[in-house]
Amino acid sequence: MLAIELVIQGIVQGAIYALIALGLVLVYGLLRILHVAHAALYTLGAYIGVIIVNQGGHIIFATAVAMVAVGFVGIGVYRFAYKPLLDKPPLIALIASIGLFIAAEEIYRIIFGAYGMSFAQPPLQQQIELFKGFHLSTARISVVILSILFIGVLGWLAASTRTGIAWRATVSDAGMAASFGVNIEKVRYINFFIGSALAALAGVMVALLNNLVEPTMGAVPAYKALAIIVLGGLGSVRGTLVASIALGIIESFGTIYLGHVMDRDAIAFTFLIIVLMIRPQGLLTRR
């Protein structure tokens, strides 16, 4: 029974990782940029969500506003930080991204305060008994359902719509796609919008789980999401999803049975190293 509980807790955590890592893998697939500042957008989403709910907004409205607003901020990040650097080596964009991330943490601290923010009346805290003696809050269940929903819609978009096809064409060969009349710039904007909106969703969800939004809450996802997309085989969306859930479950068991030897991050990176030793191409092979 305990094992099942730990798996479920792992899936909840994995679903959050998936939402964050997806944006990262989308950007990497398209631009070959390691978008570290993505985690700053996740933090921003969380702040917007908490502020709107504390002003009396409904949680669904708050989540929607956070996703749309952060989506546009994501477009801004691409337009003003990455686009001017596209003809430079990817390392330059990475450095810009790290700088942006550090600056964002301090900006949040100055604007929103060092103490972090909490919901005055946290929504979605009703407990649901999944099976005897095992309670999950509505927030936890929502995390999983919303992740499946949004990732499912995204998969459908990519597979069956014109925009999705244009996006996939741009990922595999941008020059070729452009010569067939795909508006690459538009694809990139949509890409950043969707990735950033998902990060904002993850931010609001984490705020619901912990009831604490801090300027530095992006620090762990910033590097863990990088590990996840490497695990998934850089650029593979499906691999990233599998890696997210796998990592969530491994951390869940690891904190209990290995916690006195190494902490959660050490467990995650040990797992990463072992996987890379056995399968250097990542969990799921591309092609």
């Binding site: 807790q9 909840v12 955590q13 095992f134 604490l212 620090a219 762990v220 068991f253 959660r264």
Partner: peptide, 10 residues
């Protein structure tokens, strides 16, 4: 750095 204690709580 942990804020998420699901496993420990269970």
């Amino acid at each position: 750095k942990d804020r998420e204690f699901g496993a420990i709580v269970s």
